[in-house]
Structures are given as C-alpha cells and as structure tokens.
Nucleic acid binder design. Structure first.
Lengths: 359, 359
DNA sequence: TTGTAGGCGTTATCAA
DNA sequence: TTGATAACGCCTACAA
C-alpha cells in the first residue's frame, strides 16, 4: 500500500501542482495533464472544471518536471565568444526570435574563445539537458572525452559563424572568402596597389577564409602579395591597434581589416600617428553597423547578415531537434559590399572627373 | 513489493544515471549522491569506487532532476528590451560573468519593451523555476495576476537600469539625472545658450531622470527652457532621426540626446540636411562605446558603467537567492562625462586662446 | 473518455 | 557511514 502524498504543513504556501488542480476539479491528474497539453480529448464538462481550477489556483506546470518526464526542456544553449563584441548581439537576437517562435528559450554563454570555458559550458548545457546547442566554436578541437560525450548524447549542434575541423554538424556561416574578395577587389579597382591586411586569427575558419579572399583578390587584380603587409590579430580592438602601429609606418595605400573591432584599434593607431583616412590610407573592413554611415571616416565595409545568420542557425537546430535526419548541411549566407568613403572611392571618382574635365 | 526499475532495452544507449553508477560501484544511490555533492562524509574506499564508476560511465548528474528535487535550478532569467541595442551586451556580459562565478547560467529574453512579451517571458521563467530574475522593466505596471504570481512564488527580482512604480525590488541603476546634468551643464559652460533635448520615452524612469537632469542644468545655468526644443523619442534610431528633422531647422546651438541610438538617427538627419557637428550644432549624448573616440564627430558623452551595472545587479540578485533578507535596496552607479569634440569644447578652447592672443 | 500507477533522475529522511 | 525509499511534479502506458 502506498500511502497518500504527505501533506506539507511547514511552508504555509506552496506552489500548486497538478495534484492540487486535480483534487479541486475532482478529476485525475491525467485529465489535468490532458487539458494543459491538449494531448487527448477531454469532455467539455471536465475540461471546464479543470480550467476553472487552474485559474483559481493560478496553476502553471512546472517545466522542470515536465522536462524530466518528457526528456526535453525546450531550451537551447548558445555559446558565443563574447556577447559584448558588437557582432554577436544581432546574431543572438536572430536566434532568440526564431527560438521563441517555437517555444524555445536561450541559455547564453560566453566562451571568450577559450577552449576550457567552452568545454565547461558545453558540459553544463548537456547536464541541463538543453535540446540543442548553437556554437561559435573556439579554435582547436574538442577533447576526446567531450567528443565522446557529444556523440553519445546526440544533442544536436549547429555551428555558427565558424566551421570546425572534426565536428560533423550543421553550420550557418557567411561567405567570408567572397566578402573579402569583393572588398579587396574594390580597393584595387579604386587604384590602390599596395594593400595591407589585418587578419583575424588564422586558425579560425572565417579568418582563414577572409585571408584567402584577400589573396585571391590580389592575384585576380595582378597585385603583389607582400607578407610584410599582413598582420594577424585576434579580432579584438587591441590587436588592431598594434597592427596599425606596425602597418601604418609602411605606408600602404590601403588596408583591409578582417573585423570591426580591429578597425577601431587601427583607427586609434592612425589617430596617434596623425594619419587620416582616407586621405593618408584607404580602408575597408568587415562587419557593418547602423551607425557607420554617419561618422567619419565613413567606412566601406562587408556587411554580414548577422540577424539572419542567427535566425538561420536556430532554424536548422530546431529542425534537428524536431527529428530531421540526414547528413550535416552548411548554409552559407551572402555578404554585401557596402561602399562608402574610407576606401577612397569618392576621391577616386572625383579624380576621374577632374581628369576628364582637364582633357 | 516494488519491482526493480525496468531495464530499458529499446534504446540501445541510455545516458547513465545515478543508479547505474551505484550498481557498478556496488553502493547505494545515496553514496553516489554524497560523493558528487560532497554533502556527507564517505569512506575513502567507497568514494574511490564511486569515482571510478563515474569516470568509466562518464556520468554527469542530470541537472533537471536535481533542480526538481532541490527546488533550485542555478539559472537566472534576464529580460532586456533588446540585446541588439548596443547598450545591453556589456550589461548582459557583466551579469553573466558574475552569475557564472557562482555557478549560475543566464536565460536571455528580449521584451522589445512590450508589456505582453515581458509578461509571457516572466511567466515562462517562473515556470522554468529560475532562481531569480534580472529585469529591465517595460514601461507600465504588471498585470494584477502577474503581480500576484510574483508575490506568491517569491522569486527574487532585481530591476536593471530602470526602476518601476509598484515593484518593490532591489534595483541597480545609474545616476542619470547627474549624468544629464553634467552633460548639459558642460554644454552651457562652453557657451551654448539654446540647448535642445531629444529625450527617451518619459514614462521610463531613466528617461525621466535624464529629462530632469536637463532641466536642472538649464535652471542652474540660467538658461530658458523652451518646450519647442524638446522632442520625446523612444530610444531607437528612427525616433532620433525624426527628432533631428524636427529640431535641426530650429537651429539650436546645442543638442543633448538621451541615448546613443537616437544620436545616430539625429546624425543621419543632420547629414541629410547638410549640417555638420560641431560646426553647425554642438552635441552631447548618453552612452559611451569604445569606438566613439576614433570617428568624427568625436562624441562627447555620458559614459555609463554598463558592465558594472550588469555585474552589480547580478550580485544583488545572487545575494537574495542566497537568502539575504531586508528591504529592497537601490544601488546607483555613477556616470562619467567624457568630453570630446562634438560639444564644441575644442572649438571653444581655441576661440578663448585666440582672444587671449589678440590682447 | 478517464483513472491508476510507474517512471523520469535527483535529493532527503530515517533507520540500520 | 551507509542503505532503503519517499518525495520533487510531471507524463503516459495500460486498464477500466
């Protein structure tokens, strides 16, 4: 004989559970569950009684318990390098919107691009039984143990922004090679012959792609690749600053920077060295923001669809969670070159006009 | 007689649970639990056996189940208007860092400053049994039902950035009145006599405070308050743009804008009207970002400690979660005026120098 | 259509 | 110190 659930008296108030509702409505918990989940047909009379009780008690199902029973939490984990990097907020927002449509919430983690942090978070997310994970992978491979865990639990993962060697998973990325190619080609077209590169960390897939796009553009435009004009940064402001200090004294005609934060650092260096853009050097960079058109130098940029990137990744993840099978897919979103003044284009046009006029 | 837990054969692999570990180590689940939680003393021999089994099985406690049993999830909910607003990422980051130190994760939600979304999220967070909530309250009051729920479950809330009438809770805010006062006073000191205001939505506490700071500065500096020079926006780019279109034709000597996004909009309007800052109008605005010093106009701003704000709020929340009692406290963080060129200060100084020289 | 009771994976209580 | 077993609050097969 099982004795009835012990009545708790200590805490005067207790959050009502499904039993409380059932008791008040004089039905079984099954009926209550059927009503809250619309899972099975319930007669109108009982349904009404249940709903009344729910309202009276202000009952809300405990999603923890539900998650435990159904083995799904309607939560997805998202690991980004740093939400404070202005690139990611829009991505996260896109993912959150998409997730929310399907009733999913997002657990946000910052890895700082450190493998150890990433590993800790990944394990935590698995322990919290998230239904899936959106991951901007840190450089480097998973530890064997983690790899094994991931394979074992089969929690779907979608890679975001970066692919990762050794990880077989869906991915949502941007066509960074093309983005860089377009930007650098544009610089060449405007007439710049010596073009420097401030690259991201080359062991990160998208930095590599941007570097490749840079090289390809040089080749295509018949320009010389000068290793002395290439500096590898880490996508943060300070590395852009150091790159600027190293690069600007060499007087390249143009500089292509692989992300916004490093561009900020580079401009800081230029400021200190009293060099102006685009008068003293042309500039094109990755990532676009709503404010860039209204401050000088008006940056020429490669605009990445950040929001869409996050939304797409979330969609892919939700499909996997919903049970979609098949081998991993990679969705590549297209960047768009956004020409403003920093590349020297406007000066270029003016010059052309002047030449034309002179003749 | 209770029959032993049914052996599941259907799914070949199953995530190991505490029973599996106990069985392999030939101990009871209690012992395993005691080991993983270090909650009670376990003999060295058993402890070793348990640890070995844990390692062999790659066991990780199911945090859902733990949460259900212990009635705490080590998760906190965070509701911000929009993570894509560049103000919030740093705030979120501060909160996340602080939470993570104590083993808490963050569930992130965007309310878009809509009461309905906020309410849905709040209920969801409660249903997910978060241990506490960080809330940048939308304007308006909670519905009675929600208010009742919140009071009932006693989940601690800390208000972030904005206080809210009718909500008795800890709060972490910035001294916006002082921030605005300092900025506007500075504009006056530089010599501007007609100063316009692009305000945030006045039913939001911090917009109100900034407006008050503006007015106080006018009074203190003996300037006239002209309602025609005040426009109320909604903190978004577009409202700043419209404000610019309305305000700039009136040729105020200076404009004070209550946040960054609206400043961006205002500059867009200025651009269209071919008015330059600071030559045609001076500008000071709220919120500072790492890049502002390197683009023109170099904005004079009120720098708010965003990261610290998030961190402080999280600390306060964690204290409440840990059981701290006492009446609600409000922590007010200090802003810092960051003088650059847009306020016309440098021009002002140059003029003074010229005058001096002339004598 | 509705109810009963076992299971989800922990922790916690009470004996031993 | 350890073990057995009842919560925690929900879902769901199976039975009625």
């Amino acid at each position: 004989m099982k004795k009835p659930r012990r009545v708790r008296r200590r805490m005067a108030r207790k959050i009502p559970n499904i039993y409380d509702v059932a008791r008040m409505a004089r039905v079984s918990v099954f009926t209550v569950s059927a009503v809250t989940n619309k899972s099975s047909h319930v007669s109108v009379a009982l349904k009404r009684r249940v709903e009344t009780s729910i309202r009276k008690l202000n009952y809300r199902p405990n999603l923890l318990a539900r998650g435990l029973a159904k083995r799904q939490t309607h939560t997805i984990g998202m690991i980004v390098p740093d939400i404070a990097n202005p690139f990611f907020p829009q991505v996260v927002r896109g993912a959150e919107d998409e997730a929310q449509k399907d009733g999913y919430s997002i657990l946000l983690c910052n890895s700082d691009d450190k493998q150890e942090k990433e590993e800790v978070y990944l394990e935590l997310l698995l322990s919290k039984r998230v239904d899936g994970i959106l991951l901007t992978k840190t450089p480097g491979r998973f530890s064997p143990r983690l790899q094994q865990m991931l394979a074992y639990v089969k929690t779907p993962i979608v890679l975001l922004m970066r692919t990762a060697p050794g990880v077989r998973a869906d991915a949502a990325v941007t066509d960074d090679l093309k983005g860089a190619f377009d930007a650098v080609s544009h610089l060449a077209r405007v007439g710049h012959r010596t073009i420097a590169l401030v690259s991201g960390p080359l062991h990160v897939s998208n930095a590599k792609a941007r570097w490749q796009g840079f090289r390809k553009a040089l080749v295509t435009n018949g320009l010389h690749y000068d290793p002395a004009l290439v500096v590898e940064g880490d996508y943060r402001i300070d590395s852009g600053y150091r790159a600027g200090l190293a690069l600007l004294p060499r007087r390249p005609e143009a500089i292509f920077v692989a992300n916004y934060l490093m561009t900020v650092g580079l401009l800081k260096a230029a400021e200190e060295m009293r060099m102006r853009c685009p008068e003293d050097f042309a500039l094109a960079s990755f990532d676009d923001y709503p404010w860039l058109g209204f401050f000088r130098p008006r940056l020429t940029t490669v605009d990445l669809p950040q929001y869409e990137l996050g939304a797409t990744a979330a969609q892919m993840l939700l499909e996997r969670i919903a049970g979609k099978r098949g081998r991993p897919r990679t969705r590549k979103l297209m960047p768009q070159l956004c020409v403003r003044d920093s590349c020297g284009f406007t000066q270029h046009v003016r010059k052309l006009a002047a030449v034309k006029k002179a003749r």
